[in-house]
């Protein structure tokens, strides 16, 4: 850049680049001292104000965030075609950073993945078992009525209350680590359980009684009817409901905030079930709260990523339903 634009100062130049550019250059020179004295072309992200300038969002004249020299450099760079706007893959592969131009979603995606995995492993078997019991085996009495009313009410409890429960019971009473995906997944699974139970019961109800009667007629026990015939037939419906529940859990923010799953994760290494983590929605929340203007576009991109995941999950649910739906 200096070669192209001999009449500018270093400081004016570096003000245009990302905050970590000087350090990165120094590291590169240290790694390969041979490049001293040569002209090497490197590509750097520009600083957020410059990005806005390049997109034409802020006026060029009388802009208080740039010195006149910087504007000159910018114009010269634009004239010589030195500015590029490639697709920003760093968004997916970098972890969080204080600099918006370097911040990425890798940590958030990993954290969300862990939490959802825990949530699925807990709520899927428990939800199916509870639904099968309530729908097929439970005697009709006051106690099972109580369970049913309970499940319906749990589905309508505000999510922030589940966060309070997680904070008081999982963190306060059981002493599990704060910010951990394990706790996040446990709280989310309590929230998804009612969804899965209700969906599973609907799917079980949709299996016609003739199937049950036929199986009972050839001498199967009640459990065998259930495990060998009804449950396999109801599985597509159950899976659809589960995926929709998982999609809800993926977008849930408030309970994760309360148990502290909005940690600052600058690197994806040593993330685990018990290590501090962040998740996609809480990452969106923290970025939306950041004062730097560069985070506005990052937040929007993160939201698109989140919505992309949700759309994919819902599409899978819809195709599952259409592929395996049977008319009896």
């Amino acid at each position: 850049m200096q070669a192209y634009l001999p009449d500018v100062f270093d400081t004016a130049l570096f003000g245009l680049l990302a905050d970590d550019a000087p350090e990165a250059i120094a590291q590169r020179v240290a790694a390969d001292p041979g490049i001293i004295g040569k002209t090497v072309s490197v590509l750097f992200p520009v600083s957020p104000p410059v990005a806005e300038l390049a997109k034409g969002k802020t006026p060029k004249v009388l802009n208080s965030r740039f010195t006149p020299e910087q504007i000159k450099v910018f114009d010269a760079m634009e004239d010589k075609g030195l500015l590029r706007t490639p697709f920003n893959w760093e968004l997916f592969f970098n972890a969080d950073s204080r600099f918006p131009e370097r911040a990425g979603l890798a940590g958030a995606i990993t954290g969300s993945f862990y939490a959802l995995m825990v949530c699925f492993l807990l709520s899927f078997p428990i939800g199916i078992a509870a639904a099968v019991y309530l729908e097929e085996f439970a005697p009709k009495n006051r106690f099972t009525d109580l369970i049913e009313v309970n499940i319906n009410n749990l589905a309508a409890v505000p999510s922030v209350v589940f966060g309070l429960l997680g904070l008081a019971v999982f963190l306060g009473y059981f002493g599990l680590p704060r910010s951990a995906p394990l706790v996040g997944g446990m709280v989310l699974s309590l929230m998804t359980l009612p969804t899965i139970i209700i969906a599973t019961r609907a799917a079980l109800k949709a299996v016609p009684p003739s199937i049950r009667e036929a199986a009972l007629g050839v001498g199967a026990s009640k459990h065998q009817v259930m495990m060998h015939h009804v449950l396999p037939l109801a599985l597509p419906g159950i899976l659809t409901g589960t995926i929709i529940g998982m999609a809800q859990a993926l977008g849930e923010t408030a309970p994760l905030l309360l148990i502290g799953m909005n940690a600052f994760i600058p690197s994806v290494e040593n993330m685990g079930l018990l290590e501090p983590a962040t998740s996609l929605p809480t990452q969106i929340f923290s970025w939306a709260d950041s004062p730097e203007r560069g985070f506005v576009s990052r937040t929007s991109a993160a939201i698109l990523v989140l919505l992309g995941f949700l759309v994919v999950m819902n599409l899978i649910a819809i195709t599952l339903r259409q592929m395996f739906q049977r008319k009896w």
């Binding site: 509870a130 019991y133 085996f137 439970a138 369970i147 749990l154 309590l190 359980l193």
Partner: peptide, 13 residues
């Protein structure tokens, strides 16, 4: 096991 699982809803509340 199934009864225990359906009790989780009550335990949550």
């Amino acid at each position: 096991l199934m009864i225990a699982c359906s009790l989780i809803a009550i335990l949550t509340t």
